[in-house]
Design a protein around this nucleic acid. Structure first.
Lengths: 351, 351
DNA sequence: GGTTAGCACTCAAGGGTGTTGAGTGCTAAC
DNA sequence: GTTAGCACTCAACACCCTTGAGTGCTAACC
């Protein structure tokens, strides 16, 4: 892969992303000043096709980047200056994060909306695992005959409620129970609690406090909602309608396949999780790489976000394979890092 | 509109709904035993077209029902026996409601899913006004330095939480405050409370209990979420993908228009509310009648549901104008009445 | 006077054909 | 190694023709 081939591939991709139509040798010769004639470019393009980076939709058409071509472009050809946002875009992002919601759920929602409106594609986000949040408060409130309400507030600002049916219990016992549980639970993550701690606390209660046998079941019940391995909500998906505007989705069957995939929550969720587990930050999936997910007509750009210095999920964009990767990557990264900043910073970065 | 015209219109609609293609005079003469020749039917059809009940997609095609034709059919032509569900369908609905969720929110969700899967169209539902629910419990819990958590449980089983910042307050005062508020609030609807009661309770507190001035603001804050006139959540919309399967939505632009309308939450919500305000129960909107909503390619069948004997919202189905109205109406009504039954019955019918 | 048969007419859909234009591949000359 | 020239390919479009379904009209029939 010599320098000239790279230049030509680069040109093909830039032009195709821009115009949306197969690009021919003459176009490249005219628009991009490579100092060679169309005939030479034809020869090179023929090679590039053989190598699998571009392909012809039909015999007498220009060339179109293949998924492999986009992949090479993203990995090797993109130049830093292509990734710059315009001043207006910078400003828009900055303005948005200046006066956005502080509450996590809302911040996520709004960030997705921003991302989808700025890219004109679909924005996606997986929320942090519920069980990673740390208990900040714990309360037990008597509701009425044999009913207790457990209230837990986690550090993401969420309030969790659970109504439980229990045997009668005196005020004193209740206060005692609450105090012990507070002591044991506050400051721990839900995962901790759900795991060993529940058992331990219950044993402790039974042995030392001589409280009701039922307490054990109560705790069990309280945390059973957080048992399952990946206790995340459905992913946020914003701006699916944007996809309908794309010319590549003019075919109703493609749309149906794609929307079906999007409605199957786990598809997007798994994908984002997979991406956030990679060592590197931003991950780009291109075309084929999404075919197991039934979205082979799409590409996805994702970047992880951090809560209090820990990677907790990913935010990203889903669009057609023909997308301006540098710009989309820049936007996703910018918004991702702003989200992280709002929520306690990255491990390296400050705040 | 003589009897024979009615029969012919009926036949045209039945056949078109069934087959999906314009229906000609010969087809009707053969399939439906009217005892007259195609030529006669042609004459009648010509009249029907003039009257606006049917139309020709193009000169040499058969006839297709117009929106007005469907309207006439729904209002005057449908026969009771067309509305019967099959045994299998009856069974499916019965089975479903035997072991469905008791919690309101879930019941709604699941009912919509059932309705959309049985019709193969999109199911929609507006939930009851939040402010119509009645307070069952009210609690104030001290959270920490200057923070109180208010907990309200409404009769639909929902738990409402609100964290408030207040000045310091003694345990005794807090208990007192809670008691007074409980006395004043429990058993009232949120609407009551939000309106006059908040003011009154606050005055009462200030005068007789000599509690903090702040209490007033606290109450205000507590209920400010329920201030706005129609405090409903977004409508539930299930099975939008079903619409993509319909041949009438093969055109991407129609789909885009429709989906845009569906995403604009208020469109569906207003429509369902409007329907539930009609005197009669089930309401059918056909084609044109939905054009202000940008859904003129669709029809909608809705029926109200009742909670404790009061009309609280509507459930319905959205599909193409070419739909088997009798069957859809029967299904919507059946499921609507089951939902009502689960939630305390209709005013006439018993529990 | 309503009903019917016969016939001319219309028009969408489908198949075939020709033209145009963009673009390639190949070859021979530079 | 590069380029100009030329033959070739193919999608898109326009055009034409045929077919078949269906109508509207008219004149005959009961």
């Amino acid at each position: 892969m010599d320098e000239r081939k790279k230049q030509i591939l680069h040109a093909v991709i830039r032009d195709y992303v821009d115009v949306g139509e197969p690009v021919g040798s003459r176009t490249i010769a005219k628009k991009y000043d490579l100092g060679v004639s169309p005939a030479t470019i034809r020869n090179e393009m023929s090679d590039l096709e053989e190598m699998g980076f571009i392909r012809q939709p039909h015999a007498s058409a220009g060339r179109v980047p293949s998924d492999k071509g986009y992949r090479y472009y993203v990995d090797n050809l993109m130049e830093p200056e292509e990734k710059l946002l315009t001043d207006a875009e910078q400003q828009q992002v900055a303005d948005f994060f200046q006066n956005c919601a502080a509450e996590m759920e809302q911040l996520f929602q709004q960030s997705c909306r921003l991302l989808s409106s700025m890219t004109n594609y679909t924005a996606v986000l997986v929320k942090p695992r519920l069980t990673d949040s740390v208990l900040r408060s714990f309360k037990l409130v008597r509701l009425g005959e044999g009913q207790l309400l457990a209230i837990m507030i986690t550090d993401d600002g969420k309030i969790h409620n659970k109504i439980m049916n229990v045997a009668e219990i005196s005020d004193a016992k209740l206060a005692e129970l609450e105090a012990v549980l507070q002591d044991r639970l506050i400051g721990r993550s839900l995962a901790d609690v759900t795991g060993s701690l529940v058992e331990e606390a219950a044993r402790h209660l039974l042995a030392q406090q001589n409280l009701l046998r039922q307490t054990f079941d109560l705790l069990r019940e309280l945390f059973c909602d957080y048992q399952n391995e990946d206790s995340r909500d459905k992913p946020l998906i914003q701006g699916t309608l944007n996809l309908l505007k794309q010319p590549e989705f003019h075919d109703i069957d493609t749309v149906r396949e794609l929307f079906t995939a999007l409605e199957t929550d786990d598809v997007v969720k798994e994908l984002l999780l997979l991406a956030s587990e990679q060592r590197k930050g931003t991950v780009v999936y291109i075309g084929d790489e999404l075919s197991p997910q039934g979205m082979s007509a799409c590409s996805m750009v994702t970047t992880p976000y951090y809560v209090n210095g820990e990677r907790m999920g990913s935010i990203g964009v889903l669009g057609p394979t023909r997308m301006p990767y540098p710009k989309v990557i820049a936007l996703v990264e910018q918004i991702g890092s702003e989200v992280s900043r709002k929520m306690g910073g990255t491990p390296e970065g400050g705040k």
